[in-house]
Design a binder for these strands. Structure first.
Lengths: 159, 159
DNA sequence: TATTGTTATACTCTATAACTATA
DNA sequence: TATAGTTATAGAGTATAACAATA
């Protein structure tokens, strides 16, 4: 990535521009900065952000189909295929046949998948705290609530 | 993109999973959803999110160098080259020589660039309101504040 | 020696269309 | 006919390394 200047780590003069209030840019920057950290941390587990997301949902007990994964993760169904392929090849998830619809494939994690996921999650949560270090705990929670509400209109669920 | 099911537009059952609290995923989803809308709107101006960001800063009067653009936008300097190339070819921005450092190139918008930017900005701001429609005005402002603070530790500047 | 802009290259991510098998 | 999964492909975005001009 960029950021070869130490100056960039301080509050830059360009942040005073109107663009510093552009939601798209703010989301892009925070997401990009987080992705670098996340993918770096996940490299130890041979995972990336997207494969980790799939693994997380496979571990959730909700028995998602590939179609649901695609919808929920905003991915194309074809992308889910290759993500599941990779995880399945490593024995972390399994494809099962849908009970009500034999076209659908239900993705569930194996024991090994659950183990890897658990370890990766710990590392990622630490990275999340680093990324939001400038925020108080209450502010971090509020940020998450607002992001969830903007996405799904969900006001709250059990923490 | 994905989202071929109407179900996906409603609150999906998968949002109840732990992953619905993952900041990385929340940022990725909201950013992705916004990008689609933004790039769609910007297509009328033959711009994309990133070239629009460069144009915005070129219009800011801050006279950024390419290096500053790269740092601020979290892009590699080589990416800035091609973005500026495209905008310069269309007569929207100009490369000037830095006053204190003749290596640096200062990017400024032309009159035409300012005109295009002004029009595009109106459309984008409308898209932003659509994207954050689930939030009240106060909540949208709070979301922006928290994003800015997480990024730069900036508590507040003039709205 | 270090930095700015530049060129080149490879890899990841995103977007589309077409095909198959089930419904 | 419509949907779930699959395959294939092209374009956008990201990450690196090397080089010339300037500091």
């Amino acid at each position: 990535m960029a950021v070869q200047n130490k100056e960039a780590l301080e509050t830059p003069r360009l942040a005073t521009a109107d663009i510093g209030r552009d939601v798209g840019l703010l989301l892009a920057k925070l997401h990009a900065a987080g992705s670098v950290l996340n993918n770096l941390a996940l490299a130890d587990f041979e995972l990336r952000e997207r494969s980790f997301s799939v693994l997380t949902l496979a571990c959730s007990g909700l028995e998602p189909t590939q179609r649901e994964l695609a919808d929920f993760l905003s991915l194309d169904p074809s992308q889910v295929v290759s993500l599941v392929d990779g995880l399945e090849k490593r024995g972390l998830v399994e494809r099962g046949t849908g009970r009500h619809d034999r076209r659908a494939k239900i993705i569930t994690a194996t024991d090994e998948g659950r183990k890897v996921h658990q370890q990766a999650r710990v590392v990622l949560e630490e990275g999340e705290r680093t990324q939001l270090a400038a925020l108080s705990e209450a502010e971090a929670a509020e940020l998450k609530r607002l992001l969830r509400k903007a996405l799904w209109g969900v006001e709250a669920t059990a923490p």
